[in-house]
């Protein structure tokens, strides 16, 4: 069984919701990323989503855009991201890892080369924001060859017949984008999220994770009540950036993420009980 399926199964048995933090690889520095990943696991992360920096992150709000810019300024690139994955795996062979990024860097490396390198590094799944099901065949063939999951997004605007098509090709879990907008936006509508998750469940047995717009323990608790996984990104990236802007060092920035993640973990677990 894949690490992702195994993790969701284990959490379901414990009646717990997965906490999935997102950070951008190389932000605030290349050296900080792997220690930050381990610290997030200690603070309650079940799966880690690592952003691959891109020059034109079209789906991101300002907080994550700036993280992409910082990471690129630090010399981050896709092959280096895979090296960080490999480094993380040396001391953690169980936490599922997924990359989230944009099509072009992966396409430029080549789907086959990417699949080979990523699976050798110990990566479990990929999300490409700008490769919808219509464009996915080529990359899917390569990811399937190495048993890697390709995680599909469902949006508030996705019609139900399209959900059923997406569900038919999905593996790992389905990622529900909880709002019309970019990452970090603040207009989460729980009633709509609940209805949409129910619609997805009519078409898929896969675990459902919800992301975009979850920023603290309260919003995480609300989402955890209806979802199998909660993705938190901008709030963590912002905590890190704020700490550094206030004169903190990289260790303090990591601790700021750990402490916010700990609160969110508590929020989620209080929803389950």
């Amino acid at each position: 069984m894949s690490r992702i399926a195994g993790r969701f199964q284990q959490l379901a048995a414990q009646r717990r919701t997965a906490l999935i933090p997102y950070i951008v690889a190389g932000d605030p520095s290349q050296d900080a990323t792997v220690p930050l990943m381990h610290r997030m696991v200690e603070s309650g992360a079940d799966i880690i989503e690592l952003g691959v920096p891109f020059s034109d992150p079209m789906s991101e709000g300002p907080v994550i855009q700036q993280a992409h810019e910082r990471a690129l300024a630090n010399g981050m690139c896709l092959s280096r991201v895979l090296e960080l994955v490999q480094e993380f795996r040396k001391s953690d062979d169980t936490t599922p890892l997924l990359l989230m990024g944009y099509a072009n860097p992966v396409m430029y490396m080549g789907y086959k080369a990417f699949a080979d390198a990523a699976s050798a590094a110990g990566l479990d799944a990929l999300i490409t924001v700008d490769i919808p099901p219509e464009e996915v065949d080529d990359i899917n063939a390569q990811l399937q060859r190495v048993d890697m999951d390709n995680i599909f997004l469902v949006a508030p605007t996705t019609p139900e017949e399209r959900i059923s098509r997406i569900a038919a090709g999905a593996s790992g879990f389905i990622y529900y984008v909880s709002l019309k907008g970019v990452t970090g936006a603040g207009h989460l509508d729980m009633e709509e999220v609940t209805q949409r998750l129910a619609a997805i469940r009519r078409h898929s047995q896969l675990p459902l994770a919800v992301g975009f717009g979850i920023k603290d323990a309260d919003s995480a608790r609300a989402v955890a009540a209806v979802a199998d996984g909660v993705v938190v990104g901008s709030a963590l990236v912002n905590a890190m950036a704020q700490t550094l802007a206030d004169g903190g060092n990289s260790g303090q920035a990591i601790e700021a993420v750990a402490s916010l993640l700990g609160e969110i973990r508590q929020g989620i677990d209080s929803a389950a009980s």
Binding site: D130, I131, P132, E135, L153, A155, P156, T157, R162, V177
Partner: peptide, 12 residues
């Protein structure tokens, strides 16, 4: 060509 955009825009 093609349609390489986020899922949110596919319906539009």
């Amino acid at each position: 060509g093609g349609k390489f955009v986020s899922e949110t825009l596919m319906a539009a």
